[in-house]
Design a binder for these strands. Structure first.
Lengths: 207, 207, 207, 207
DNA sequence: GATGAATGAGGATTCATTCAT
DNA sequence: AATGAATGAATCCTCATTCAT
């Protein structure tokens, strides 16, 4: 009657968890199936009772991690636009990534490698996000950014949010803090919200 | 008999070039020595006349790419602080990375994987850059950022600059432009300079 | 409650059928237990409720196919020798093999591989057949074959009969007909009977 | 200066020899690459310096064995038809197969399994042979066989010739002789030549 | 400097088999 | 009687590396 009996459907989740951590750190090629299995307490052969192969496992990990982001996007897309929707969106995303800190590095691996999952990732997740963001910016009364700068602004935000998590290893070397600690995420969230206000309101004047 | 006859010292560079491209795309583990050799028109065995091993080759690629960044840092650190030093620095870095578009992805791989080269990278390159950046920000008369936000600002800049190149694969899927094309880099440079002015001058007011 | 309800004893037969087809095509080593199970609509694990293992299943398939041939031999051995006994025997064997077209290939696999079942096959089936055949030939009044040629004649007949079925795959490629179709088997039967008459009656004269 | 220095091109041939023997006995699936390598005195990994994979090695073995048969066919096809051409052809083929006694079993494996090489085998080798044989039979003045029986006659000959070698394992169990011994091959050759005369000359009369 | 050949180590995957349910 | 899950033992193949030529 325990909540997660070993050997049932829970095994699949435990494999995904272990795989997520290892794929995030070493990438697809750098991760040995045997190592994933060992972290779950299984033999490599047993993994193949749950996933058809390494590639399929990788994609399942990616899908599981990206799915909530897609849904988050869809929820936001349809809802009322209050004045601080931006701040709430930033907070939501930061919170989700904070709970799955391996995800951004995983996505970075995929993006950098130009992996096959990339096209789907772009279509189902990035494009709606961009559409939402651009629609938002168009609604500004005194916009700081021209329409052709919109994509750059969106991209900038992607890099700011994901970079915080993906760059964590080197940041924790240079600074003393762990970027994945809750208070670091909290601080980064407030910083990004402040930056968002600046980018929306300020007028940098002529170059 | 010149120092860089094809087939002599030049071979070393050609190996580094091929390795840089492949390491950037597939990472250290995902790149086969044989593939690097093939791209140079050599056999894997021949590579070992030029480099002691895969790991050493990887580090040589990393060193060759990072060295100019470090020197750039050192030059800037000692020079006069004109009003648009920031703009010039951004331009310099963007230009260097534009000429070696694989470098950011290479560094991302290293950072994400928490590779062994990372500590050196942090110490010799990132720390001076941060010191310079912080000193710069401290000199502001009406600063928008508190001292404890300084690291976040620096990190943000790192992510903005490197992200542009590292995320290129997925961006070229979502948008129609190639982020590595000269005009894209030019546009991104101007965008970042504008953003720099905003972050320095503007006052977002209370949250 | 009948003895051959589907799911009870009938399952055993269905397993044997599927196994016969696969073993005949891919041999013992080339056939996966899982594939046999799939063809029956079962899991590999379920097979072990019916057979002790792959090897045992293989032998059961072989035994089931060979048993009627042995019995056929025994019947013929004890019965009256009419003038067209040869023609009847050829017809019987061809008919049996026509109903189990996988069997010859199965036996071929076993023979070619020098499998362990081979000795038993030779002793219980081939030897009686040869004895019968030789006794038959000795009864000829004006024999075309010397006693030392008898084994060759017998072997020739084996190759002619079994070859028709075993070589079917390539023959259907070269000719347009399917050697396993009833009319092909009928034609081959008549051909072999004619050949039998030729071999018995004719006198080729000196070389 | 020895005729077959180890480590040169001769290695390829030695691999083919070892592979031919093992593939003939155990088939493609039943033969382990490691076992082939061991018989040559190599590591499995070393095999891959000479052949792209198991399948490719298998096809190379098949091609090397079948090539002489094809050429033999082509030579015969173009030459004068003397009265004992048949006897000579039988002798040639028996001799070639006698020198490569694994080949018939290898071909049997391929034929039985309906392997992919089969179509090529049928087209390049079997069809010319059949054409030659049929042309030969049409030239008979008082033919014993109708035109629609021609394919059956050809097939019979195939089975008689190849069967002698392929069935060798079980025959050596039942009889005391080794069918692959030179004198056995010699005896079988004479037997087949005699049978050929019978099939050409005799008239079995009405069934 | 270049290469063909060899190899130990490892890595993904298959497979026959077992066992608790 | 059926099955999902687990596994040890292969099996094919890749890879980084070495070395004689």
């Amino acid at each position: 009657m325990s909540a997660s009996e070993p050997g049932t459907a829970a095994t699949r989740e435990r494999i995904l968890d272990a795989a997520e951590a290892l794929f995030a750190e070493h990438g697809l090629a750098g991760t040995a199936v045997r190592d994933i299995a060992r972290d779950v307490g299984l033999t490599a052969a047993s993994l193949y009772n749950h996933f058809a192969g390494k590639q399929e496992l990788y994609e399942a990990v990616l899908a599981r991690g990206v799915q909530p982001l897609i849904e988050m996007m869809q929820r936001i897309d349809g809802q009322d636009r209050t004045s601080d929707a931006r701040a709430a969106l930033i907070e939501d995303i930061m919170k989700h990534l904070g709970g799955r800190p391996h995800l951004p590095r995983l996505i970075h691996h995929e993006v950098i490698s130009g992996g096959s999952y990339l096209a789907k990732l772009g279509r189902t997740w990035l494009r709606p996000l961009i559409a939402t963001g651009i629609a938002e910016m168009k609604r500004e009364e005194e916009p700081n950014w021209s329409e052709e700068e919109f994509p750059l602004v969106i991209t900038a935000w992607l890099n700011l949010v994901f970079g915080h998590f993906a760059m964590a290893p080197i940041l924790s070397v240079v600074f003393d803090t762990d970027p994945l600690a809750p208070e670091s995420i909290e601080r980064q969230t407030r910083f990004l919200q402040k930056l968002a206000r600046m980018m929306a309101l300020s007028d940098p004047g002529p170059g």
